[in-house]
Nucleic acid binder design. Structure first.
Lengths: 328, 328
DNA sequence: CCGGCGCGTGTTGACGTGAACACTACGACC
DNA sequence: GGTCGTAGTGTTCACGTCAACACGCGCCGG
């Protein structure tokens, strides 16, 4: 900055004023400073700025694996929303699911230049790791089961599972089998409860749950067992990837979809519309999820502290070719 | 920091020494400072640190859309590699594909606290936007067609396309049809040239390319046209998502895969193994891609300037059920 | 003709940290 | 017993920026 000031023949303060687009600078002076900036390739030092102003204009996002579909989409929405509001996004990956790794991520966090944090990993990991979140750092958790004193944003898992199950019952199926997510996952538990409650409300039998781990192979494994049981005519998988595995198992067993068996997923990945057959599923609005998290966090930052204000994002049933009337 | 120092009855410098794990601090003093830190919830100010040391220990990653599979996986690998080396990852999304948005992203970049940048968007966007990369900021481009003076890291698209095409010819197919990526995309162009060259080397007829846009719907559209042509027995799609669309179109047209038509994709997404039928594809090592980019960038940062040292990551043919002998 | 006001610009200092240097106390060695 | 080295700690200052205040000049009204 000093170099720019010298070249333009002004003081550093004037350079600062130009850099920040202040009004009280003469037009010719401004032009001279701009020229000097370009010539020297000057760019303001973010660290000094942050130090001076006390705010970093950055948020941290703690993630586990980007490879999972939902996390990625949410992160995308968060990044977009944050950028639009002039905030930078700092990615903080947790390298391993264990206490040490999570704690390490939070220590890294402490040293980072962020004004607040969005937590995208499942709450049970935090519980297990027993992490202590830094004081005075606003936090938003994207997982409705978090029992911390932080604002929470999440998809309405319970409602979505109800839509999926209800849709299958409406089609005349006696009951609905469920391929669930991992036992440890709270979102998976909410979907399971939504399914269970709907069956209960309709006074239907509740078949045993087959647990998967969100991946297509685990869905395939569950699908093979379900395909072997002729009583099974309707399956609700806790996400689209497992539904894909179920579809493959049904194809291999020669059971027609939706002729003999109907299948519903959850998430509405881009690909789901092109599975064979195209998958009926529950659409989550990841963009709404991301936007709300950023908004909540920035509110908390502005207010100087976190204020719990849970937000629940509704889901939408997308009917495609993988579901049909029983014996239809 | 001053508060901690006062509470522990030491100078600020000693607190600094403890925070940085220097050796020359008495054990009892160290313990006292640690206790004071905990009590006051002290965390070092990243901005001041960066200002003092001149290095931010952070890298920026410029991305367009996280929703595309390859970008996400690469970003994941970059984040992991960077974190392992003690670097923070700053996500810089380009909100729109147009000159203004790209330029805006680069301006944002200038103000950000990063020591270097990895560019994950396609090089042609940079060309079109005519952006001027900041001076003195090391850059690595993940797109082998970049003609800038920066280190370049990319998957060997040409080799991969050759493997895919060669595999189909080995199975006895007369020639191979191609569903290509967007005309503007250089990686798509490389894959197209790899396919073309292989057909040429085997003295086969080169059918016209059907251009898609990487998405399953565009693959579906291309697939419908190919399905209508009985001469088509082998299709190489430029990515797995388009291959998925092709598969669906073939199913709908009643053409058996691989009985009548063989299909190969590119990327090896997690789901590809569970498509119906499971998809033969070309696996890219995204983790290698990410790791190499980070390594190249950190080298450039350490050296004080970028040094072109192109890295090409090999591909691997993964044979699954979607390909078979002609008329087999 | 003088006081005051407003605009454009310069000067000073502080944000939190850590390198460089200064200093003290104490043990080892000749 | 004096000199030197070393471990532990304190003091000073600069990193780049910007808010707060100070200054000078021209213009207006009285």
């Amino acid at each position: 900055m000093a170099d720019v000031a010298a070249l333009a023949g002004v003081s550093g303060q004037t350079v600062s004023r130009v850099a920040n687009n202040r009004t009280n600078v003469d037009a010719t002076t401004r032009a001279r400073v701009r020229a000097a900036m370009r010539e020297l390739g000057y760019r303001p030092n973010g660290a000094a700025r942050a130090l001076r102003s006390g705010a970093f204009h950055g948020i941290g996002v703690i993630v586990f694996e980007l490879s999972t579909f939902g996390t990625t989409r949410t992160l995308d929405a968060i990044a977009t929303a944050a950028t639009e509001r002039g905030y930078a996004v700092n990615l903080m990956p947790v390298l391993d699911i264990n206490q040490r790794a999570v704690t390490a991520a939070f220590n890294r966090l402490s040293a980072q230049a962020v004004d607040g944090v969005i937590i995208l990993i499942e709450a049970y990991l935090l519980d297990e790791a027993g992490v202590q979140l830094p004081h005075g750092l606003p936090v938003v958790v994207v997982d409705s089961s978090a029992h911390y004193d932080y604002p929470v944003v999440d998809t309405d898992q319970f409602q979505g599972a109800g839509q999926a199950t209800g849709h299958l019952l409406d089609l005349g199926h006696r009951t609905v089998w469920h391929v669930g997510g991992p036992v440890t996952s709270y979102p998976a538990a909410h979907r399971r409860r939504g399914w269970e409650q709907t069956l209960f409300d309709h006074r239907r039998e509740v078949p045993p749950v087959l647990f998967g781990d969100w991946t297509a192979p685990s869905g395939y494994e569950a699908g093979r067992r379900l395909a072997a049981d002729p009583a099974v005519t309707a399956i609700f998988a806790a996400n689209d990837q497992m539904a894909l595995g179920v579809l493959r198992a049904l194809h291999e067993a020669g059971r027609a979809v939706p002729g003999e068996v109907s299948v519903v997923g959850f998430d509405d990945m881009e690909e789901s519309a092109h599975f064979w057959p195209p998958l009926t599923t529950i659409r989550q609005s990841f963009s709404a999820l991301g936007q709300h998290s950023v908004e909540s966090l920035l509110e908390a930052i502005a207010a100087g502290g976190p204020q719990p204000a849970p937000i629940s994002v509704p889901t939408q049933l997308i009917v495609r070719a993988s579901t049909g009337h029983k014996n239809g």
